[in-house]
Simulated scan of single mutants.
Amino acid sequence: MPSGTPSRRRGRPARRDAPDGPGARERILEAARAEFAERGYDRTSIRGVARKAGVDPALVHHYFGSKERVFETSIEKPFEPVMRVPDLLAQGRDGMGERLARHFLGVWENPATRAPVLALMRSALTNETAAALLRGFVTRRLLERVAGDLDVPEPELRIQLAVAQLLGVAVLRYVIKVEPLAGVDAEEVVAQVAPVLQRHLTGA
Rank of each mutant, 00 (worst) to 15 (best):
R135G: 15
P57V: 14
V70S: 11
D151G: 01
E109C: 05
A147C: 03
R25V: 08
A162D: 05
E109R: 11
R33W: 08
P81Y: 11
P22S: 11
P6F: 05
G54R: 12
W108V: 11
A130S: 12
S3Y: 10
L143T: 14
D149T: 09
E35K: 12
I176C: 03
Y174N: 07
A186E: 02
A119G: 09
R51H: 13
I176K: 07
H103M: 09
E80I: 14
R140C: 00
A115I: 14
L161S: 07
A147P: 04
G40A: 09
V85C: 06
R93C: 04
V70E: 15
E156P: 00
G95A: 04
A162M: 02
A115F: 09
I75E: 14
D94R: 07
A32S: 08
V189G: 03
E68G: 15
L118G: 07
R122S: 11
V55M: 11
L157T: 13
V175Y: 06
G40T: 09
V152G: 02
M121T: 12
L143Y: 12
A204S: 12
G11Q: 03
E76F: 15
M121I: 14
P22K: 13
P86A: 08
E128K: 09
R102G: 04
V193I: 05
A132T: 15
V189R: 08
E128I: 15
P2C: 00
V55H: 10
P180W: 00
D42Q: 14
T139I: 06
H103E: 09
G23R: 15
E30K: 15
R69M: 12
L125W: 13
Q160W: 03
I159F: 06
R51M: 11
L172T: 09
E144Y: 12
L88W: 08
D151Q: 08
V146N: 01
A162K: 01
A34W: 05
A186G: 07
L201W: 04
E38I: 08
Q192I: 13
E98W: 11
T202Y: 00
L134A: 03
S7A: 14
T139A: 08
R173M: 03
Y174P: 02
R140W: 01
E80N: 11
I28P: 00
V152F: 03
E26D: 10
E72F: 10
R16G: 01
I28H: 08
P19A: 13
E156Y: 04
A191V: 01
N110H: 14
T44N: 06
R47H: 09
T73W: 15
R173S: 04
A170D: 01
V82P: 00
D56L: 10
M121W: 12
S123L: 01
I159A: 00
V85T: 15
E76L: 15
T44M: 06
L29D: 01
R173A: 06
L157M: 07
L172W: 06
P155D: 03
L181T: 14
V171E: 05
A14M: 11
Q198M: 02
D42A: 15
R102S: 12
H200E: 06
R9S: 13
G136M: 02
